[in-house]
Amino acid sequence: MSSPAEKPREVGPQLFPFPLSEASVGAQLWIHSVEGNPRECHRLHEMGFCRRAELVKLSHGAMTVCLVCGARVGLSETVAQRILVTVAPGEPRENPGNAKAVRSDLSSFAEEGTLFCRIRDRFRRRKGGAAG
């Protein structure tokens, strides 16, 4: 599990399961598994977060918003870290987060939507570096 300062991951092939929190905005993904408390996992499965279900990550701001089974669901950072996903077939493997290649309409939204997060993360990284 990576620290919040490393998010969102922008590049790199993702052939193995990785947390939803690390996926790029606009990426089309498949759910691999859900980890954590059995009760919470069960409810997530019932809401459609089950193995091989398709998922599109819509935003990564204060929380993660994703589209699953046609419904828009908001997830806290903890939950997004517990949902492991893989790249959906058809998504370019070289860059799973390259939304422009798959859903150009969502990509601009994604890029603009995460600008603040990127600045914030960069600031956190610098702060972390200085502290270290």
Partner: peptide, 15 residues
């Protein structure tokens, strides 16, 4: 297409 909900959420849920 980008829906009105997408556009509004971009601002309304912005940190």
């Amino acid at each position: 297409g980008k829906s009105a909900t997408d556009w509004l959420d971009r601002w309304v849920t912005h940190p």
